[in-house]
Amino acid sequence: MPFDAASQPLSLPRWRSLSADEGDCRLSLTLEGRPLIQLRLVPGEVLEVHVQAICAERRQQALWAACYWLFARDPACQRLQWHLSDPLAQAQASGLLLATEDAGVYRSERTLFWQLPQPWLGESHDGVYPQQMHISNGKRHPLRAPKPRGEVYRRFDARLGAWVSLRTLEIEHDLERYNRWQNNPRVAHFWQEQGSLEQHREYLSKLEADPHTLTLIGCFDDQPFAYFEAYWAKEDRIAPFYPADDYDRGIHMLVGEENHRGPHKVASWMSALVHYLFLDDPRTQRVVAEPRADNAKMIGYMHDQCFHCEKEFDFPHKRAALMILGRERFFDRCTLV
């Protein structure tokens, strides 16, 4: 959605506030009360960005914040053309700025910007885990990195005006919540995992010990509302049903709090979940899911997020729809704000 000078400041992960003063063809950003960057904008087929003033101590941060603001206020904006006399080597090395054939002219691409892991992943991200092939349970796959603990993803969703974040599930802290959610008739209809606290403790303990599955809690403004399982498809029961690549990730999804249902909330958390999985390892080229084939509402939501249904197939316990979203398609069409 467009932002103007009267709009609420757009908050960013681990920054208290980022606010703007916008007028005809100009933009000034202030970060936490301090001037950050002043721009002259020239609309056209590609938005041209001329830097008039920039905080010398925070140039990389300033360029990133300007890209964020301009891409977030207009999801249709795919490219920025920068006019810079002295670009940062760091900005070019990261992919934030790309050189062109014209001296002093650089561009920023929306598809590249949203693939930069920071600040969305925060301190949980340690880079790409080295590859060594491994065999477990008769399946050959890459050795997986140790599972993270704590918060793994955070982004401010400007459409909702709320933080969307993901953290790892902690059994002692989340068991009762998980038990309540699984025993909700609406959830139980699709998950069929209703049971006692001890049954759910055993279930979660098995997943905690399983290196191919990561259990996550979804939060809006730090309030838990959903449970997700992210798994490596190569080692999962889904692998025999399609040609799984070494770094494909799969997802199981459960919204437990009734006040966080609805298409606008799904668009926020599902895009965040997929975004996290693609950022977590740049070798991940596909995210897959296998909802029940009769779960038309969830399948519809996934279509809205650019998943496509490859086929239907039979698990022992359900008829499933194989839903697939490719990395290129996600970042080409993503409407992250």
Rank of each mutant, 00 (worst) to 15 (best):
W120Y: 14
A296K: 13
I217Y: 02
E32Y: 13
L322Q: 02
C25F: 08
A62Q: 02
V46M: 14
E198N: 04
A320E: 04
G326H: 08
I238A: 05
E101H: 01
D221L: 04
K234L: 13
A244M: 07
P146E: 15
P211Q: 12
R329S: 03
L47V: 08
R40W: 06
F330E: 03
K318V: 02
R237C: 08
D210V: 10
A293F: 12
E328M: 06
Q52E: 10
E193F: 03
V274D: 04
R73E: 14
A272K: 06
V288K: 11
P142T: 05
H212M: 12
Y231K: 09
Q78Y: 01
H189Q: 08
E229H: 14
F330Y: 05
Q118R: 07
V128E: 07
A209S: 10
G95V: 01
R58F: 09
V51Q: 07
P148W: 12
V164K: 05
D248F: 00
R329E: 11
G262L: 06
Q38F: 10
D332A: 13
A72N: 13
M1S: 00
D157G: 06
C309M: 10
I251C: 13
P148E: 08
K311F: 05
L97N: 05
G33F: 06
E109L: 11
G104I: 00
E290Q: 09
P9M: 01
S205L: 12
W82Q: 00
D157M: 06
A65D: 06
A65R: 02
D74E: 10
R26I: 15
L80T: 01
V287L: 09
L36S: 10
G44Y: 09
Q81P: 00
E101V: 03
R319C: 00
R329F: 00
E208A: 14
R327F: 03
